[in-house]
Design a binder for these strands. Structure first.
Length: 1051
RNA sequence: GCGCGGGUAGCUUAGUCGGCUGGAGCACCCGGCUGAUAACCGGGAGGUCGCAGGUUCAAGUCCUGCCUCGCGCACCA
């Protein structure tokens, strides 16, 4: 180990940027990983960010937690590789490019040219790669960005294809329909996340429609807020257990608004609970019917011929559905199979005809009704209402205010629309998902049990296809007859293309490096087993599927890297924002369950959102995004990381407050630096070498700080292991500020001022060196810069190559005693405040009454308390009195409801007497036998004494008493200290070097006499080469102390 | 609407199994200490522990309902 160099001034930005260069030059990251090559692997998987968005402060949060765990495990000797990754497919990329190119719809894209469009996407995904890399490096997130996995690369896509084929082979992949929110103007369906962006409150007409029963005079009333779905009506759903009423109109109402109505004698059927709300006419109730009794009744289609019956037996009949409620409407749900999820599912269940009445442009199809054909559905509300009114099929219309989803790009209302979609049969593996999830260690565990568990218990089949362009193509080819092939590799594709060519189909070249994207793969026509042409299903995969494959696709499993994969699965640790619960956390598990029948990750840290200082979510539109560079360039990355880790539990929302970060910087990092500087500067001055310098003789202070350090290591270990990084950080920070800086270093300053190398000084240097270099290792995962900078200077090597500290010996007695000493020192200050005696005026004597033997610490205490001598006083009762306090927990169990009475009885008793009685045996209080165990003895100082009592660790009471008498010698000494302090402050103000000498003049008026040895002391302390002390008024700076005025001048 | 997690001093936060006077930090005020730093120490002020009930001798803590914020799901006919 080298002799440390002086530390210099603290400049975090300079320190960090210089260290970055050093790391780069020495390849420290790679070395830190490779040095543990033989260790037990700890497998981390990077959740791939998308580089077509700017990195923000929330990414810094996630990367801090990823990094700190990886660094910690590395230091523990684990082999922790960190491969970077990029998510490069998906709708966000397409939207970005569409904006740039001014393309509004899928049609626009096709006209623009899919190839050119995808090329633009391919380029767009790297827009912010540079910014990501800079941020990543600057914050010291150690991750291999030179060899990352990239979801658009052929090998990655090929692995995804392989995975899909595994699902296909297990019959987990199927083609179905799903009702999706769909925007006809962009020709795009949206994920729920996107839908959530576009909810708007709108007022629209809703209608109560009469469905005329075929073999009955009555009509069934149903309600809808989307009149455009009425031509598609093929069923009426009722709750089997819901009660309905049949009513007969007896009299018209007094008032009527809008279209619709009914005639006297007409019969209507609707839910009993909703009768009052819906019906405006005077009616007689004819009968009450259960929903189940209505089931099977046929009614006349509203728009005859709009939908063909086909083979359906249930079309235009009443059908049962459990989910029907009577919270609104009529308790009868109009069912248009293609335009509602429940409708669709119900339709499939009972066999309703599944036929569209609306085309992909959002217009009614030919043949629905002459008034409607070809018209945009949302503009047909009035026409439909008029039509129904004319046919006497409308009962009422009513404006209805509700939230309705709109396209977040164009603002057009979305239509729920049944579309072809490919699904992964997740419902088939539900039990396994739940079982595997139970094996995952979640932090916090409520995310796993609650949110994620809930999600899995309600798991639905995964709609993985998107009618988009930029993504992993769905590798399924299909003939018109429905024969299907799923392609699992490039080689297989080549073989199939060759086969098709031989069967006489023409195909483009299919080289080994064929780009696995649209439109290239669309152009291949394969041949079915029966010799028919097969086209690729024109979908791309949900981009969540891509990232869900990351655990193996990053290694191009199973094509190469087979062994790498085997060694890196399942993953030990992943960490992302809690918003990934239904995203990445799910898709990883979904893919590993279906493909490998295995868990994917063993532990998952789910992070809270980041909010601004006001608790608002950070968003571009609010303009409250924090730029991490503002802090990297001011307080540095270390302080930023430390702040984020200690501000709260990782899973709680983090209110990012610049002031808080500033505080962390000032408190933790400046303090740590100054502590370090104190050591390094003296070590350099004294040529201290931690290896060769003699060990010296340890003072209790040294034993104490090392014991404290070991306590902190122990606590840090516990907190890290339970994911409580915030607690660990706070614990370390408390140690640095309160124990190390404010007690150990403060108490040790004079030890190091000695010019010669005393035993005491050497011990202090060794202790400081040991504590600081160990501390470096402890903070390295959270603040890798300062830790390394200090470590390199103190030890000569990078802290990131060092091992995680072991817990060393702790001396419990020293810990407890020192703690008591500190409390006594505080008590002394308190006593002085109460008795208005200034700190610098010494007391002749301080007494410690009872408590453990603190002889070793008397010197420290005398100095802290500013007393001439410490004495022991055996007679507690001289200063203290006994108070007997009830132990509520004990007494509560005994006295129950009488406890308040018993407690108040204590106030009436003489405690000194009570205590002595209790010594002998139990005492009856309010009818209860109270023994020693039921009470606690506390001592307090008797009135009139300058004393304070505190509780020692062993349960005993310790009192401190100060002698408040003044003597000329004490006054002189106190005055000398006050003068010295003023002059020292002046020296500092004048920016004098420590060794500079001064000319000193002091004038005193009405001041206590200064003894000669106190004058000598002043002269020595202030390095005065010349001095005068006069008893007169003076000039220059002055101050007052205890009624006298002192002037002084320093030259 | 359903689920999850919050709500403790002006702000940030700790609070274990229900039990002693609800602890800290920042900011504020007063005082002190300092060749020791944006540090530190003592004191002060600042709390209906979201609200309302309930259980209990005793509730920040347990139960119920409600309010409110965040997130997720569903937004439905």
């Amino acid at each position: 180990m080298p002799v440390p160099s002086p530390a210099g001034e603290f400049d975090p930005v300079k320190l960090e940027t210089e260290l970055l260069a050093t790391w780069k030059k020495e390849e420290t990251f790679s070395e830190s990983v490779q040095a543990r090559k033989n260790g037990d692997p700890f497998i981390f998987l990077e959740g791939p960010p998308t580089a077509n968005g700017k990195p923000g402060i929330h990414h810094v949060v996630a990367r801090t937690y990823k990094d700190l765990v990886c660094r910690w495990k590395t230091m523990q000797g684990r082999f922790v590789e960190r491969k970077g990754g990029w998510d490069t497919h998906g709708l966000p990329v397409e939207i970005e490019v569409q904006k740039k190119l001014g393309l509004k719809s899928n049609q626009d894209i096709i006209e623009y040219g899919m190839e050119a469009f995808n090329q633009a996407c391919r380029e767009s995904v790297w827009t912010y790669e540079g910014a990501w890399r800079e941020m990543t490096e600057r914050m010291a997130y150690w991750c291999d960005l030179d060899d990352p996995y990239v979801t658009l690369h052929n090998p990655y896509v090929e692995s995804c294809w392989w995975a899909i084929k595994k699902m296909f082979e297990q019959d987990l992949l199927y083609l179905g329909h799903k009702v999706l929110p769909y925007c006809p103007s962009t020709g795009t369906s949206y994920s729920s996340h996107e839908v959530a962006l576009g909810y708007k409150e709108v007022e629209e007409p809703s209608v109560y429609v009469k469905f005329k029963l075929v073999e009955d005079d009555a009509s069934i009333l149903a309600w809808t807020t989307t009149p455009w779905t009425l031509p598609g009506n093929v069923g009426l759903a009722v709750g089997p257990d819901v009660e309905y009423v049949r009513v007969k109109v007896t009299k018209n109402p007094e008032k009527w608004e809008g279209h619709g109505g009914a005639v006297v004698g007409e019969e209507l059927i609707l839910a009993k609970d909703l009768f009052k709300e819906v019906i405006r006419h005077h009616c007689d109730e004819i009968e009450v019917i259960k929903g189940s009794q209505l089931v099977g009744m046929a009614y006349e289609p509203l728009f005859p011929g709009a939908v063909e019956r086909g083979t359906s037996k249930t079309a235009w009949t009443v059908i049962p559905a459990d989910w029907v409620t009577t919270t609104d409407g009529t308790g009868v749900v109009h069912t248009a199979v293609m335009y509602g999820e429940d409708d669709y599912n119900l339709g499939m269940e009972v066999g309703l005809p599944a036929q569209h009445t609306v085309d992909m442009k959002g217009c009614f199809m030919e043949g629905v009704h002459p008034d409607l054909d070809g018209k945009y559905v949302k503009s047909c509300d009035d026409i439909i209402i008029q039509y129904l009114h004319g046919q006497s099929l409308l009962y009422r219309e009513k404006m209805y205010v509700h939230d309705y989803p709109h396209c977040w790009r164009t603002g057009d209302p979305l239509l729920y629309y049944a579309m072809d979609s490919w699904f992964v049969r997740m419902t088939a593996v539900k039990d396994k998902l739940i079982q595997f999830n139970n094996e995952v260690e979640w932090a916090p565990n409520w995310v796993g049990e609650g949110r994620f568990g809930e999600w899995l218990r309600n798991v639905k089949d995964w709609a993985i296809s998107r009618e988009r362009f930029w993504g992993t193509p769905l590798p399924v080819w299909r003939s018109e007859e429905g024969e299907m092939k799923c392609i699992g590799s490039i080689e297989e594709l080549q073989t199939e293309v060759e086969k098709a060519n031989q069967a006489g189909f023409e195909n483009p070249e299919c080289p080994a490096d064929v780009d696995l994207h649209r439109p290239i793969v669309d152009d291949f026509v394969l041949v079915s087993n029966s010799g028919k042409p097969m086209q690729r299903e024109p979908f791309v995969m949900d981009c969540w599927f891509d990232s869900g494959c990351a655990s193996f696709a990053q290694w191009h499993h199973p094509f190469d890297g087979g062994e790498t994969f085997e060694n890196n699965f399942p993953i030990d640790y992943i960490c992302e924002g809690v918003d990934q619960t239904r995203g990445w956390f799910y898709t990883l598990l979904a893919v590993s369950t279906t493909v490998f029948d295995s868990i994917c990750y063993k532990s998952c840290l789910s992070l809270g959102l980041i909010l601004d200082a006001e608790g608002k979510k950070m968003s571009k539109s609010r303009g409250n995004i924090v730029n991490p560079w503002d802090h990297f360039n001011r307080e540095g990355a270390d302080a930023t990381r430390w702040y984020m880790v200690t501000a709260g539990a990782p899973w709680n929302p983090l209110k990012f407050d610049a002031n808080g970060l500033r505080e962390t910087y000032g408190k933790m990092f400046l303090t740590l630096w100054n502590t370090y500087k104190f050591h390094a500067d003296y070590a350099a001055l004294d040529q201290f070498d931690p290896l060769t310098s003699p060990k010296g003789v340890k003072a209790p202070l040294d034993i104490w700080i090392e014991s404290r350090l070991n306590e902190v290591i122990e606590e840090t270990n516990e907190h890290f292991a339970s994911w409580d990084f915030h607690k660990a950080g706070r614990c370390i920070e408390n140690f640095v500020v309160n124990d190390l800086s404010n007690w150990y270093v403060r108490r040790s300053r004079r030890r190091l001022w000695e010019e010669s190398a005393s035993q005491d000084k050497l011990a202090c240097q060794h202790s400081l060196h040991h504590v600081l270099s160990t501390l470096c290792r402890l903070i390295a995962p959270i603040s890798p810069f300062m830790a390394d900078s200090m470590h390199r200077n103190l030890v000569g090597t990078s802290v990131h190559l060092a091992d995680w500290p072991e817990v060393g010996q702790k001396d419990g007695t020293v810990l407890a005693n020192m703690n008591l000493v500190r409390e006594l020192a505080e008590a002394g200050r308190k006593i002085r405040v109460e008795h208005k005696r200034r700190q610098r005026l010494p007391c002749a004597q301080g007494w410690i009454v009872s408590g453990p033997d603190l002889t070793e610490y008397h010197e420290i205490l005398a100095e802290e308390l500013n007393v001439e001598a410490i004495g022991l006083e055996p007679d507690l009762n001289r200063f203290q009195k006994t108070e007997v306090h009830p132990n509520r927990r004990k007494l509560g169990a005994k006295c129950r409801q009488d406890l308040p009475k018993v407690i108040s009885a204590f106030d009436e008793l003489d405690h000194e007497t009570l205590w002595s009685e209790l010594q002998i045996g139990a005492v009856m209080i309010e009818g209860y036998e109270v023994s020693l165990e039921d009470v606690e003895r506390r001592r307090s100082e008797r009135e009139g004494f300058a004393a304070l009592t505190i509780n020692a660790h062993d349960g005993s009471d310790v009192s401190l008493v100060l002698d408040m008498k003044d003597t000329p010698a004490l006054l002189s000494k106190g005055l000398a200290r006050d003068i010295t302090r003023r002059i020292q402050a002046k020296r500092k103000e004048m920016d004098l070097a420590i060794e500079d000498t001064i000319k000193l003049h002091v004038w005193m008026n009405n001041a206590p006499a200064l003894f000669q040895h106190d004058i000598d002391w002043i002269v020595q302390e202030t390095r005065a080469s010349e001095h005068t002390f006069e008893e007169s008024e003076g000039k220059g700076d002055s101050f007052e102390v205890d009624g006298s005025t002192i002037w002084y001048s320093v030259q």
